[in-house]
Every structure is written in C-alpha cells, then in structure tokens.
Amino acid sequence: MTQWRPEGSQEWVSSTTSCTGDSPAPPSAPAGIEVVQVPPVPSMQQIQEAFVSLPFCLPKPSMQPVGGRTLVNLPTFYEATWPDDGDCLAPGETSEAMQLLSWSIEFRAAERSYWYDFGDGENSGWTKSAGGIYPDGDIRHTYSDVGKVRVHIDATLTGSYRVDGGEWQDIDTVADLQDEPEVPYEVVEAKNRLVS
C-alpha cells in the first residue's frame, strides 16, 4: 500500500496494488504531493516469537529449613527465587527495546505457573504460587525417607509488550523455561540421646 498527502493537507490518500497482476498499477502522485511508503507492521506471531526467544532468567528453589537439610516427617517450605544479575529477564522486569521490522518493541515478563519437583518422586503439580517461607508459605512437602534429593522448579512465563513506547498489551503466549537448576538437599533423621 502507498500513501500520499496533498501539500498543505492533513489527509492521507491511499492506494493498493494486487499481487495477481489483474489490477492496474496505482496512479502516480501528482507533482507537489509527498509520497510515503507505509512501513511493514509485525504480526502477532512475530511478536510472540520474539518474546519466547528472550534471555529469561531461571528460577532456583529456596528451602526452609535452611542449611541444605531437613528432617524426616517435618514440613519443608519452598520458594521460587529469581537471579538479579541484569543479564537475563525476570518476572516484573522490562526488556531493552528491540527492532522488529521497523518498530521498536519492549517486553515485560510476568509469572504464569510453577511446578515444584521435590526430588523424591513427588511434586506440587502446576500452581500459580511462587511459594514462601515459614509459616505462611503455601508450597510445602514432608519427606518420609532419609536420603539425598535434588529439588528443582519448572516455570512458565507470560507478559506484555508495547510498540514505540505506547500502551502495554497482553502478549497472549507462554514461554516454557528449560534447564532450570537443581538444588541438592538432604533429608535426615533426628536422633535423641540421653547424656549424664
């Protein structure tokens, strides 16, 4: 599509060309008229593909009791923690502007869901909770056997985008993060003994 604006006018005049060759070529702009080629607009699919390819941070599980160990039959509390190193994009952060075709696009990441793998064959299932610390954290698990486990969190993100500094709009897609780190954790048994 080509647009032009008559000199001294605020109104744009448009013409389109068919790719089949059946339509005549658009008329030439009269002398003294400014001709402007409309820049291509990125599709929603292109915007979504750019979002999922961003360098997202990976969440790491934090557990209580702290110190890398917990007790058998004692509730353990879990929380998703995100790095704050500036090299990756965490929930709540905004990306640097990137060029997509001729447009400047920014993205803002947001939490969508978590899956806590407790390392003993049990998991939380998908939840929207980032967990929390004792006593209010709502992601909890009680180990029934002693041993060493590796805990990790699968996470998905969503977010929003804006074009050329305009209004934020829902991205309507999901970034499924991969290779989230595992954290070693030990489950031990408390032993009582009498001392004199």
Rank of each mutant, 00 (worst) to 15 (best):
T16K: 11
T17P: 02
R140L: 05
A130Q: 10
I133S: 12
T20G: 05
T94W: 01
P59F: 10
S160H: 03
Q169W: 08
A175R: 13
V195F: 09
T17S: 13
D170V: 10
S43F: 02
P27G: 06
A29W: 00
V195Q: 13
M98Q: 14
A31G: 04
E93G: 00
G32A: 03
T127V: 15
Y161P: 03
L89F: 00
T127W: 06
E122S: 15
S14K: 11
S18C: 12
Y116K: 07
G92C: 02
R112S: 10
V72Y: 01
E106M: 09
S160L: 02
S18F: 03
I153C: 06
V52D: 04
S9E: 15
P65F: 04
I33H: 15
H141E: 02
E189Y: 10
G86S: 01
G159M: 05
G8A: 09
Q169K: 15
V13M: 13
D117P: 02
C88M: 01
L101S: 04
D138Y: 03
Y185M: 11
M63T: 13
A97V: 04
S15F: 05
A29D: 00
K60E: 15
H152M: 04
D22A: 13
D179I: 08
G147P: 05
W126R: 13
S23E: 12
G68M: 02
D120I: 08
S102L: 07
P6V: 07
E49D: 15
A50S: 14
P91T: 00
P61S: 10
I153W: 03
L89G: 00
N123K: 12
E180G: 13
Q64V: 03
Y134E: 14
Q37K: 09
I47M: 06
P61A: 12
Y161V: 08
G68L: 02
P6A: 15
E189G: 10
E167P: 03
R5V: 14
F107H: 09
D138H: 04
P184D: 11
L177W: 10
D84N: 12
T70V: 07
L157R: 09
L54N: 12
K128P: 09
S102T: 13
Q178K: 15
A90D: 01
V146R: 08
S124A: 09
G21F: 02
V35G: 01
S129N: 10
A25N: 08
Q46N: 06
E167N: 11
L177V: 10
Q3E: 11
D87H: 08
T94D: 00
A50M: 07
S14Y: 14
S53N: 14
P61R: 13
E34S: 09
Q37M: 04
S113Q: 15
K60I: 13
Q48H: 06
A190S: 14
E106D: 14
S28H: 08
P83S: 00
L157E: 04
K148W: 03
G67I: 02
E7N: 14
W82G: 00
S113I: 07
V38M: 04
T76Q: 06
P30G: 13
M44C: 02
D84T: 06
C57A: 15
I171Y: 09
Q169S: 14
V36Q: 04
S9Q: 14
S43K: 02
V183Y: 04
G147Y: 03
L177Q: 11
L177Y: 12
F107Y: 15
A190K: 09
